[in-house]
Design a protein around this nucleic acid. Structure first.
Lengths: 236, 236
DNA sequence: CGTCCTTTTGAACATTGTCAAACACTGTGG
DNA sequence: CCACAGTGTTTGACAATGTTCAAAAGGACG
């Protein structure tokens, strides 16, 4: 018999923007139908085209969202804890547009889409939270499109590194959180091209050794990257 | 004194997905604060970075959404009647990520963002309609990203033409609804490249003379374009 | 008819991708 | 501990794709 999600998992999930202001009853109703599962690396959790049976919440590990066409594949984004993914498909009861695979051992909460849609139509606070979340996601994708269409691959890499540095609290040295070939795909280039782009950033004070990134002069790199709040600022 | 929107404009707007299921009172409240304006061509209605004071509804004409960075500019999408634009910025009370300019003489309804947010937080049906709309927009942008990252410019053009043909009810001949240089920018290429891509489609039975498109053998073109529901189907 | 803008064409150039091979890293099993 | 396989990364030579620049051709409009 299915007993829902262990209480121990509630607290971090409850903190998600998506559940702010939601009635305790509604939240508990969602959690009752939820599953937790731990997956090994390289497991394809969902495939594009599938019906959206669950809303996913990353609790631990990391997951890559990717898309395929005509034998080609591209990384759309990487999901880190704690956050949800494929909310839009769940809400619209539409097929997934992206596939998802675990990159490492990962713990994931699965909320049956039916439950999500029920709570969505009964709890106004949840509906509003979903709106804010979706608006955020929408804006993130728009920024990504601007990044792709307005910048060269070298500029995209430069800005990516600057964003990662902020994520690392501005440290001069930090680690890449993603394999280089996946980063290349995310940035819309080949691994070979990324490898050369990394070298091309050396004159701007960037050294990358394995996963270790060092940015000696942020100003110099910013001169090339020209970061913009309307593309690179995740909160804006 | 401001008297709100003429009743004559209500009916088409009322039909928008965004207002389905919304209480009549709430809808009228929105319309009371609304303005209608007619703009000549080439007017920049909003600029990226501006605060989102209004939600816009295209009633007549057409508007181009575009973005700029570092002196470059790219067309993000073209808005045709009757539909809303920049909903996400309005809801999040965040700066616009895109600019908008009229392409022809256009009639536009402006809903003060404050009113939209008020009705959004008071009318649950509106909140849910906003969710569906945003989820739709989100999925459209994801499809666009897949299109950009997974396809060459020739493939993007081929699929664009197939989509336009469907929009024209499958007619063998139809007109482009957008200037070629804007189409080029929308497809992420230069006008010169588009011009050559059009020629490159001749062996696949495509002839474009001015705005007139003729597709003699759809199957042949589909062989190259390989359209996919998960990229090209607007409803999916 | 002349002006302005878009579109097309050609040639040179830049960027990015492909292919093949070498290299580096990781973990396994002898 | 080492040899080895498997995978990811880098490098070099080359090809394909896309851009830039300049100029000509075509259209729209006063």
């Amino acid at each position: 018999m299915h007993l829902g999600l262990p209480e121990s998992d509630h607290s971090e999930i409850r903190k998600l923007d998506l559940f702010q202001g939601v009635e305790d009853d509604a939240f508990r109703a969602l959690m009752r139908g939820a599953y937790v599962q731990t997956f090994p690396p390289q497991i394809e959790l969902i495939s594009e085209g599938d019906r959206s049976d669950f809303l996913y919440i990353m609790v631990d590990g990391s997951v890559e969202l990717f898309a395929e066409w005509n034998g080609r594949e591209t990384v759309m984004s990487t999901v880190h804890p704690v956050s949800t993914f494929i909310l839009a498909a769940t809400i619209r009861d539409a097929p997934y547009l992206m596939s998802a695979r675990t990159l490492m051992k990962s713990r994931v909460v699965l909320l049956p889409s039916l439950d999500v849609r029920t709570v969505f139509s009964e709890d106004a606070a949840f509906a509003r939270a979903v709106v804010r979340e979706l608006a955020q996601c929408y804006r993130a994708v728009i920024k990504n499109t601007k990044n792709l269409k307005l910048r060269s691959s070298l500029e995209r890499l430069a800005n990516y590194l600057l964003r990662q540095q902020i994520r690392a609290d501005g440290a001069e040295e930090f680690d890449l959180l993603i394999e280089k070939r996946r980063l290349a795909s995310y940035l819309g280039m080949t691994p070979e091209n990324l490898s050369r782009a990394i070298k091309a950033l050396q004159p701007y004070g960037v050294v990358i050794d394995g996963v270790r990134v060092s940015i000696t002069d942020r100003n110099d790199l910013e001169g090339l990257a020209k970061p913009s709040a309307l593309i690179d600022d995740p909160s804006h």
